[in-house]
């Protein structure tokens, strides 16, 4: 059954290439930057666009309180 599922993975991967291209094309045309995974806060909706202060927008000592914050980490490498 596992090998059947692996076969399914291989077949559906090829079948879904068109869907992936549709999404990539939409991202390209609209200039999108992020996945629509977490819509609960603006800095989780656009993770790559958020500045480092948005998680503490209510108060400098206010802890990050949205559940999706526990799935992500700050990208500090690109800070100029």
């Amino acid at each position: 059954m596992l090998s059947f599922l692996l076969l399914h993975a291989s077949i559906s991967r090829n079948a879904q290439t068109q869907n992936l291209q549709l999404k990539a094309s939409l991202v390209h045309e609209l200039g999108l930057t992020d996945l629509c995974l977490f819509t609960e806060a603006r800095y989780t909706r656009h993770l790559s666009q958020a500045d480092l202060y948005t998680a503490f927008q209510d108060h400098p000592l206010s802890l990050e309180h949205f559940p999706s914050g526990s799935f992500t980490e700050p990208n500090l490498s690109g800070i100029r």
Binding site: N19, L22, K23, L26, L30, L32, L35, C36, T39, R45
Partner: peptide, 9 residues
Amino acid sequence: ESELVSSDL
């Protein structure tokens, strides 16, 4: 099909 990037747009 594009919901992963456009659901809330």
